[in-house]
Design a protein around this nucleic acid. Structure first.
Length: 300
DNA sequence: ATACCGACCTGTCAGC
DNA sequence: TGCTGACAGGTCGGTA
């Protein structure tokens, strides 16, 4: 579901709502799929820790946790008994010997359909809820993901998502990323090891604004066009962030609000519709297994 | 190195 | 009304 602008919007919302709060207890559902770290390690790392800050790297949401637990674990797990019966198993906290004295990070990747929401404990528990973190202030942080393509993990001593931040990369470095690559430019834009955070919507939208066809070989694109692409990627991402991201089917931010960038889409999801610049029907082709939308006249 | 494909999952929607 | 197939914001691993 979410690309960089959506993840940025969610991370900002979460930071506003939960930074400074402390995780009291964590419930993790039985499904294994969304977990990259073992459930007891995730729960054990989160429980008792204060959330210092929530931010984004690529499409990852990162919760910075304070190094040392705020409170002992014992009273926490005792207060959890009532919830246990209702919601299923609560994992035992893992020993934290490997994280003592180090900052820990809780990293969340939302995949296609993941959502991370803040809500009151009384709020109905949505289907496909895989994690609930009860916070000291009384609110809950919930991870919901129907397709389970999302991933939850904890890291000690620095999480490296790879690639460069599209909003921070200089034009020189951006151009260098594609030098000599025979892959289609769209595939290169989607490669998170190069640029982190650009997904299918914003790749198509950026290529349209730069006037480049998705299938063009990266290496065959002129320096001037790559400069335009660099500007287009940054402009599209910034505008999308300003509008709270794109809500296609069910995307909402941490507060349940929809984004508005979908109304600015010029090619994505507009197959057969007239190009807003020249009137030519927008085409859709499948490239690297993903739908790619473009205007055959405006993009050469 | 690159490119294509299926796999991972569930839900929704168009068409019959 | 209900079945079937295509498709969905992402990533990974296998294979040619």
């Amino acid at each position: 579901m979410p690309e960089l602008p959506e993840v940025e919007t969610i991370a900002r919302g979460l930071d506003k709502r939960v930074a400074g709060d402390t995780v009291e207890s964590v419930w993790i559902g039985s499904r294994k799929q969304p977990l990259k770290s073992p459930a007891n390690v995730i729960a054990g790392t989160l429980e008792g820790k204060r959330i210092l800050r929530v931010h984004r790297a690529g499409k990852h949401i990162i919760f910075d946790l304070e190094a040392e637990p705020r409170a002992l674990r014992t009273p926490v797990s005792q207060t959890k008994k009532s919830n246990r019966a209702v919601r299923g198993q609560t994992r035992q906290a893992a020993p934290l010997h490997h994280s003592d004295g180090q900052t820990a990070q809780w990293v969340v990747h939302l995949g296609m359909t993941g959502r991370m929401v803040v809500c009151e404990p009384a709020a109905e528990i949505a289907k496909h809820t895989h994690l609930i973190a009860k916070l000291a202030s009384g609110i809950e942080l919930r991870f919901i993901d129907p397709r389970m393509f999302g991933k939850l993990s904890v890291h000690f001593g620095g999480f490296d998502p790879g690639g460069v931040e599209p909003l921070e990369v200089s034009e020189e470095r951006f151009v260098a990323l594609f030098r000599g690559r025979q892959t289609p430019i769209k595939s290169a834009l989607l490669n998170q090891k190069l640029l982190r955070g650009v997904g299918n919507i914003y790749a198509d939208e950026s290529l349209f604004r730069a006037g480049i066809r998705p299938r063009r070989r990266a290496a065959a694109i002129t320096r001037e066009q790559l400069g335009k692409l660099h500007a287009a990627v940054q402009k599209v991402l910034r505008e999308a962030i300003a509008l709270g991201g794109s809500s296609i089917s069910d995307y909402v931010d941490a507060d349940g609000e929809e984004g508005f960038f979908q109304f600015q889409h010029r090619v994505y999801g507009r197959e057969g519709d007239p190009c807003l610049v020249c009137g030519t029907a927008i085409r859709r082709v499948v490239l690297a297994g993903r739908s790619s939308h473009y205007c055959a006249k405006c993009q050469q």
